[in-house]
């Protein structure tokens, strides 16, 4: 049971001469909701893409519940990309079928229920949906899997505040002791209450990894305030 959900060891990633990530060491336990925070271009999305195997590290290694990124890890990682990849011509229900075929851990009934709660028209084609509604569909698909690690890249960026609350509650409702959720976002104040821990990335390096409550205990500051201090422009 001591196995970590995610282990990154000396991970570096360069794009040509640009170092997107440099010597990242992270060890994330199971059963936590963790914020991946940092200014634009700090490497958040690159890190997430490395973990889900869309990119390969130039140096170092990544392990998800003991698996290197690959088919075994993809079966237990549920990834919400920053942009939609669902084909335009599909209906929302087609997308659900698609996910049911792809992932053994996909809970179809749960997805249908969540779509209803969010008032997403299930028979509509993806191309007819607004940007925010597309994001909701995507999130429903991702959260309806029973994964060990959820990677959510900007899950609440494009949706209205009411949907934001629903999404955060969805994350809380689906929380289970074996799963870890990694959320990247700029909207720190909105998600701060649901975070156990947070990671600050800056220029491709981890500058702090701590628990939300210890920050408040030691410095008497919220993550939002601390972020504004650390990353003052």
């Amino acid at each position: 049971m001591n196995q970590k959900t995610l282990e990154c060891t000396e991970v570096s990633k360069n794009f040509g001469s640009i170092a997107a990530l440099h010597n990242v060491n992270l060890s994330l336990p199971e059963g936590k909701i963790i914020g991946l925070l940092g200014p634009n271009g700090s490497g958040k999305t690159t890190l997430i893409k490395l973990i889900c195997g869309l990119l390969t590290p130039c140096e170092g290694s990544i392990s998800i519940c003991g698996h290197e990124p690959g088919p075994e890890s993809k079966a237990i990682v549920s990834y919400l990309p920053e942009r939609s990849y669902l084909p335009d011509w599909m209906t929302v229900l087609d997308c659900l079928d698609f996910f049911r075929d792809f992932y053994e851990d996909f809970d179809y009934e749960k997805a249908v229920g969540m779509l209803e709660n969010l008032k997403v028209p299930a028979k509509a084609r993806m191309k007819t949906l607004s940007k925010g509604t597309k994001e909701k569909v995507q999130l429903v698909l991702v959260m309806s899997r029973r994964a060990r690690l959820y990677l959510l890249d900007e899950p609440i960026g494009g949706v209205d505040p009411a949907a934001r609350d629903y999404i955060l509650n969805t994350i809380l409702r689906n929380y289970d002791e074996n799963a870890t959720v990694l959320i990247s976002t700029h909207l720190i104040a909105d998600i701060e209450m649901v975070l156990d821990e947070f990671i600050f990335l800056q220029n491709g390096q981890v500058v702090s990894y701590a628990s939300t409550d210890s920050l408040r205990e030691d410095l008497g500051k919220s993550i939002d305030t601390y972020f504004r201090e650390v990353f003052r422009c």
Partner: peptide, 14 residues
Amino acid sequence: VREFALMASVNPNT
């Protein structure tokens, strides 16, 4: 715990 977490919109571990 879960009910409290949803009521308050906070983390269950909290």
